[in-house]
Design a protein around this nucleic acid. Structure first.
Lengths: 253, 253
DNA sequence: CCTTTTGTTCCGAATAACGAAATAAATGTT
DNA sequence: AACATTTATTTCGTTATTCGGAACAAAAGG
């Protein structure tokens, strides 16, 4: 492995949370010597990953190009988008598609609603697997061994007011999800927002994505959720089928 | 500057044209020693910029995250999107937004049409400044000194059947664009597709983007173009105004 | 005018990258 | 089943490159 490269790309990660940064600021944040940071920046600028805007630096347009390529190449996304749009028409709620990336969930597609009260999620956003309906559905249906390992080691950090921080409670919720085939969250990732999520399986019967309907908490009463679940399940089935998943025999969970 | 980093990010660029690559293939393409390529890949994987999919490697989801951040942070894009949608409604043609990135133009936003015959452009796509209506409008309205330098050094490579490859012809077309305030292209970037483009100015009176309407060549007859131009100009004016551009005094061209 | 802050260049020391070659793993062939 | 072949991964001594303190430059502030 190449230390310099990894360090440089770590530096780039600062720009996830900071729109603009000067050399000075990066030095402070990384606690690396000024000269080293300077060199790294130079390299990133030369590659178009960073660009200088007056005093400060910001993310370069190369990243836009790469990002769009990734989005376009995602098979699940291709299969899901039309069905997501249809689901949005049926429910008139925002629909999200999330996939697993290591120990995190990442939002790869969204279909917005026209409702005045909306929940805003950004494509590319990351969340831990334990928080939020959609990430947790990925966790619930992952291979049990991997799941166990994750649950034993994960540190449960609160993100919003009702983020689950108790390991036992999390396990209970996961088991319920496996049983019922869906999971619900209220104010786990953002206050006053709720979601219902179901899993999407590929041709091998492995969960590859989570599909969710998101909206303001006050609208997501039990009766409404009961109504959403079959719609969600139907959509997820269609997507799973498009990915080559056959039948309901949920292979070894 | 940091050679290893630059080389590694160059390696990553291979994935712009190749969806998947094995170690072997990368070695062949780069002509670099196997061990070096191996190390670079490891570093990219560790940073989430690349991921292993069975035998081969492909772009990682980190890039999706970065790409979305870049898209979201672009001011022009924010200002333009609603007006682009409106323009699409008026014309029922695809609308593109392009900005300059070094010696290239990059598509940063698009609004698709519902027409059965469509021209497909991908967000994040790059094109040289001399080819296509939208890139060329950026070239036409850039500071004259910079423009001269570009025109003196650029190598005109044909991309589609009618790409302009004659320097004198290009200069003529650019002068016409400056005079008329818009430019037209037919089959310059892709065969059978045409576009009409106008410039967008920022608060300093500098061109920051090009706005274009794109469609199949057979539909883009002179009479139709004449009809599109005022609609485009009106939209571009609105966007420019939103960016703080005041009045028609086109500061030093 | 001097002080302070921020960016950039220099250069010797030390480390981290380099790449040939060996090894391992997987695949194909006789 | 044994062998050949292709592709991925590890090892290791050499050397080029990165490293980072310090000096320098440029701009901003007092």
């Amino acid at each position: 492995m190449n230390k310099t490269v990894v360090k440089t790309l770590e530096l780039l990660q600062l720009f996830i949370t900071h729109e603009q940064l000067t050399l000075q600021e990066m030095v402070k944040l990384t606690k690396l010597p000024k000269t080293s940071v300077f060199r790294m920046i130079q390299s990133l600028v030369a590659s178009g990953f960073l660009k200088k805007d007056g005093e400060a630096y910001e993310l370069g347009l190369s990243l836009l190009q790469f990002g769009c390529l990734v989005a376009e190449r995602l098979d699940v996304r291709k299969a899901a988008l039309p069905i997501m749009k249809q689901l949005k028409e049926e429910t008139n709620e925002a629909v999200n598609l999330v996939i697993k990336d290591g120990d995190e969930a990442i939002y790869v597609e969204k279909v917005e609603t026209s409702e005045p009260v909306r929940v805003y999620t950004r494509v590319g956003r990351r969340a831990p697997l334990y928080a939020g309906a959609c990430p947790r559905v990925l966790l619930a249906f992952m291979p049990s061994e991997e799941q166990k390992k994750y649950l034993d080691h994960v540190e449960l950090i609160p993100i919003a007011s009702k983020t689950i921080v108790d390991r036992e409670q999390l396990k209970t919720v996961i088991n319920e999800a496996k049983e019922k085939g869906y999971t619900v969250s209220h104010s786990e990732l953002a206050d006053y927002s709720s979601a219902v999520a179901v899993p999407i399986f590929n041709h091998e019967g492995k969960v590859v994505a989570g599909l969710s309907v998101v909206g303001p908490e006050n609208r997501f009463q039990p009766s409404y959720i009961e109504q959403l679940v079959p719609q969600l399940k139907h959509a997820a089935e269609q997507i799973s089928k498009a990915l080559g998943f056959i039948g309901g025999k949920n292979v070894e969970l």
